[in-house]
Structure formats: structure tokens, C-alpha cells
Amino acid sequence: MPKILLIEDDALIQKAVELKFKKEGFEVVCSGDGKEGIEKLMSEAPDVVITDLMLPYTSGLEVVSAVRAITDRTIRIVVVSGMGQEQVVEEAFELGADDYITKPFSLNELAIRIKKQLKS
């Protein structure tokens, strides 16, 4: 069963995404801030990290950078954010993000994109 680490500070979005992926058969580990998310990255060994950009303590861009710097596994990273500015999207990809989805988003679209990332 693939494991997702979801780093999202909006409790409603976190719960909705968590429930969707549990129904899809994933194991989901949640974090409400970037600092805790990076700690869980080390202890949980996820297959996919879904991170918001605007997070308490540590930004989503710092999370993307940390995933690439401190893991030797191929972890897929999907950034979900209300910030659709081109330079922010570009920076996320330069740091190692595999996909970027702008809020608001469809849970079904997110699930399709995650499954596609796991196949590649």
C-alpha cells in the first residue's frame, strides 16, 4: 500500500485529502506544518509527499528541497498551493517537485495525478 505524507495547514483541506486517499487504498500520514512534515519524512518513509507552499515554521519550497536533500529514495513530490505565480511554480520544479496543482483543486484530479506519479 503506497504511503502519502500530506503537509497541509488548512484542517479542512487536510481532512478531505486524507479521507479521499484512504478510500483509494493509500496509507496517509498528515502534518500541519513544514517542520513537523520534514520530521515525519524521516520517520515514515513515504512514497509521495503532497505539500502546500504556505506553511507555518518551514515553507513548502523548503520541504521540497529537504526531501531531495535528505532522502536517497525516489519520493514523488506534488505541490498544492493557492500561489499560482509562474516564478513560484518554476522554483518548485527547480527544487525537485514532480507536479504542481493550484488551489482550489479537484480531489479526483489530485488522485489521478498521484497515481500517475507512482507509475512513472
Rank of each mutant, 00 (worst) to 15 (best):
D33L: 09
Y57D: 11
V49W: 02
L12T: 10
V88K: 03
K15C: 01
C30D: 07
E86Y: 07
P104R: 11
F21P: 02
S120E: 15
A97L: 06
R73Y: 13
E8H: 03
S43K: 08
A45C: 11
F93L: 09
L12C: 01
G34T: 07
S106R: 05
T58S: 06
S31C: 07
V78Y: 01
E109K: 09
Q87N: 14
E62I: 04
M1S: 15
R68K: 15
E109L: 13
E91W: 06
A92P: 03
V63I: 15
T74E: 15
V49E: 00
V63A: 11
D33P: 06
E8F: 05
F105G: 01
E8C: 05
T74Q: 13
V63K: 11
L6W: 13
L61W: 13
L95W: 10
L95C: 10
I38G: 01
F26Y: 10
R76S: 10
A11S: 12
T51G: 05
V48G: 03
K35C: 00
G37L: 08
Y57R: 10
T71H: 06
I38K: 04
I13A: 11
L5W: 12
R76G: 05
K115W: 06
C30H: 00
K15R: 13
F93K: 09
D9A: 12
Q14V: 01
V78K: 01
A92D: 00
Y100D: 11
K103S: 04
V67I: 12
V88R: 02
E91C: 03
I101W: 04
E91H: 07
Q87R: 14
E44M: 11
L53W: 08
M54E: 11
T51C: 10
I7A: 09
Q14I: 03
E62H: 03
K119T: 12
E24G: 07
S106M: 11
I75L: 14
G96L: 07
A111T: 05
L12K: 07
V64T: 05
K40A: 01
L19F: 13
V80W: 09
